[in-house]
Design a protein around this nucleic acid. Structure first.
Lengths: 203, 203
DNA sequence: AAATGTAATGAACAGTGTTTAATAACGCAA
DNA sequence: TTGCGTTATTAAACACTGTTCATTACATTT
């Protein structure tokens, strides 16, 4: 009875081959810049074949988005190990920015790109994102409980810190930091992160 | 010899008519969602006519981007009137966020959208943006000079504050705040702005 | 070896941005 | 008013897009 298993495996391999080619192309030309024919050509199949594995172009995007969300969750887990909530919070921030600068296309995929029919479609991805966000807010709450902050509004604190991190990464990802010379940007990001941490410590 | 003048005026009117229709459509369906044929239909002309006034689709986008930058500069001028640098800085921030939340599509146009050939193309727009950013950094420097901050790194302070504002607006514009209920979002934005101001005061 | 079921194809459809040859509209001198 | 020269407008064409579907090719089963 190994045949159906092999078929299943081959199908999965094909799906992954499409995903790999798509990610590679999306990184180069962006979502709109890549056609189904491009992807088909990259894997040396005809355009129609793609539709046997993904029902349309956006489903390929969503599959990639889910992979990105899972990778991001894995990154986060390293920070989750720290017992002390204040150190954990700093680690989360560092990890968030690290992920964004290291995988700008995946970050774009997750947090910026206005994908086709920006809705609840890819629910798996959405649930993943919600869970990591909840973990973030809980850590802020833990900091409050342990008297690291005087302020007690966990939501606002979390949101404010997130604004900074998301803004920082976004500007890198969408290249809106042309006013700062190339060679200073990375240092600027580090300095700004340290600054927001110091600022947060006064909350 | 008023004929050439009238021709000139009519040409300008046509350009503006195209821009108005394009902005209206872009707001509804986004840059990629709008076709030249859609714009042509909206102004009741044939598709080819558009190309007599703008050399391609991206030029229409750039023209709109410039209009948005000019509007944003005008918004900023109200803040520029304040003498006290610390109050001026707060006003700039408030104005920045106000503009973003009031004109999400224009903000998108200016700071987020990955436009066709994201380069130095629309230099007018870029110069405008550079000027307003310089004004922002100068205000931070003025705050330092007047001992509102202990820290003396104007660039990092400015960048950090900008990260927060840009991140906040971005999340609204690209709707990445679905984890917060609709009715709380505006208040959250206000609270977060106040929080970052209080944090900045400790720098 | 023949029959069956599935995977792959390539043509077709309706859309896209853009170019261009043909046409219509206009201003102006005779 | 007529005819000429510009200029504005258009419809058609080209090469592309996402997507569907009847047909073909092939691996598996009988």
């Amino acid at each position: 009875m190994g045949i159906t298993q092999r078929k299943e495996r081959e199908k999965e391999e094909m799906r992954q081959r499409i995903l790999d080619a798509a990610l590679h192309l999306f990184r180069e030309k962006g979502y709109e810049g890549v056609s189904i024919r491009n992807i088909a050509e990259a894997i040396e199949y005809s355009p129609g074949t793609i539709y046997l594995y993904y029902k349309d172009k956006s489903e390929i995007f969503y599959a990639l988005q889910y992979e990105a969300a899972a990778l991001k969750r894995d990154h986060l887990l390293s920070a989750a190990l720290l017992e002390n909530p204040w150190e954990r919070l700093q680690a989360i921030g560092r990890q968030y920015i690290d992920f964004g600068l290291k995988h700008p296309d995946l970050y774009d995929l997750l947090f910026i790109i206005r994908s086709p029919m920006e809705s609840i479609e890819n629910q798996d991805c959405w649930i993943l994102g919600q869970a990591t966000h909840a973990f973030f807010v809980e850590t802020v709450q833990a900091c409050i409980d342990h008297r690291y902050f005087k302020s007690t509004d966990a939501d606002t604190i979390a949101f404010t810190l997130w604004c900074h991190a998301h803004g920082l990464v976004s500007m890198f990802v969408r290249e809106r930091i042309r006013m700062y010379p190339e060679e200073r940007r990375e240092q600027l990001a580090r300095d700004s992160f340290e600054m927001i941490i110091k600022m947060a410590a006064t909350l």
